[in-house]
Simulated assay, not measured.
Amino acid sequence: MQKFLKYTIYINLIVSILSVYMVFNFWDTDRNRAYIFIFLAIATGFNFFFRRHYHKKFEQRKRENEK
């Protein structure tokens, strides 16, 4: 389970990158949809950095407790 959670962090990064790509595709044709993808890109980008930070923090705590 722990290894699965490690990979879900990077799924957020992939979704964020794809959302930015979709913003560029929809910007001229459908501005409302582009705004939705901007929000999605910001939210998933924030989630990536937040979860990665706490994952590193928990790993460090785990290593310190093993010593």
Results as ranks from 00 to 15, higher is better:
31 R>A: 06
45 G>S: 10
29 T>A: 13
43 A>Y: 14
17 I>E: 01
24 F>R: 07
3 K>C: 05
27 W>A: 07
17 I>R: 00
39 F>Q: 14
33 R>W: 06
25 N>F: 14
32 N>I: 02
22 M>R: 05
42 I>L: 05
19 S>Q: 04
23 V>C: 12
21 Y>A: 10
10 Y>C: 08
5 L>H: 09
44 T>F: 04
18 L>C: 10
41 A>V: 02
3 K>E: 07
21 Y>F: 15
23 V>E: 08
6 K>E: 13
19 S>P: 04
9 I>A: 14
9 I>D: 10
28 D>V: 01
38 I>P: 05
20 V>W: 07
9 I>S: 10
14 I>H: 06
11 I>K: 13
11 I>D: 09
23 V>S: 07
28 D>R: 15
42 I>P: 02
6 K>F: 06
32 N>V: 02
11 I>W: 13
24 F>N: 08
28 D>I: 04
25 N>A: 15
25 N>I: 14
19 S>M: 03
12 N>R: 12
37 F>S: 03
41 A>K: 00
40 L>A: 13
43 A>M: 15
30 D>S: 14
26 F>M: 11
40 L>H: 11
6 K>Y: 07
6 K>D: 15
28 D>P: 05
5 L>Q: 10
22 M>N: 10
32 N>D: 12
35 Y>E: 14
26 F>E: 12
24 F>P: 01
4 F>V: 08
7 Y>P: 01
23 V>D: 13
22 M>P: 02
26 F>G: 07
30 D>N: 15
19 S>G: 04
18 L>I: 06
12 N>C: 12
23 V>M: 06
19 S>H: 01
17 I>Q: 01
34 A>P: 06
30 D>Q: 05
44 T>A: 05
27 W>G: 02
35 Y>T: 06
36 I>V: 13
41 A>Q: 02
5 L>E: 04
13 L>W: 01
38 I>W: 00
28 D>Q: 10
20 V>C: 08
37 F>C: 08
17 I>C: 04
30 D>H: 14
43 A>Q: 10
9 I>G: 10
7 Y>V: 10
23 V>T: 05
27 W>P: 03
38 I>N: 04
13 L>F: 02
32 N>Y: 01
11 I>E: 06
35 Y>S: 07
20 V>L: 11
13 L>I: 05
9 I>F: 09
20 V>D: 08
15 V>F: 01
35 Y>N: 14
3 K>W: 12
40 L>D: 07
40 L>G: 06
16 S>P: 00
16 S>K: 00
38 I>E: 13
39 F>N: 15
